[in-house]
Amino acid sequence: MSELIKEEELKKEIENKFAGSFYDLNISRKNRIWIGLNADKALEFMSFLKDRGYKHLSTITGFDEGENLGAIYHITDYHTLVNVKIRTPKNAPSLKTVRDIYPVCESFERELEDLFGIKIEGLPEGRNYPLPEGFPKGVHPLRKEVKLDELVKTLDSKEEK
């Protein structure tokens, strides 16, 4: 495992510092670390990463696991990518903004709001992104319960009016 020195070191540090606040932590290959984190520790964990040189938030991927929605924050120091997975219950989905740590997150977080309907606490009101203005309210297309046929029908009927 000599190849993974850097990854193992970071993993150990996370295990010590954040014991009990994550549900999954593994190294899938060189330069890839995955962590499933409890939502309350999100901001603390990201400041910890940033202090260690992980300054580039590549993007945020939203996901729908059925009972839970969530987001994966892909954070890198240009070499190693740390994927921070945070879940939030589907009946009241909400995540805190990471604006203070990664100011570039805004468009990524708006995507979570639009496409998954996850409320982002602390994100100022703004226009829709990436969905168009006038897109039916409450329809979040990347949620699994939204089926393509029905979505097309809804949008078509709206256009006819």
Binding site: L115, R127, P130, L131, P132, L142, V146, L148, L151
Partner: peptide, 16 residues
């Protein structure tokens, strides 16, 4: 900058 005028829903389409 305002973006999103040409969202094509490629990610949703890819899931299908």
């Amino acid at each position: 900058v305002n973006l999103g005028y040409n969202h094509r829903g490629v990610e949703k389409a890819a899931e299908n």
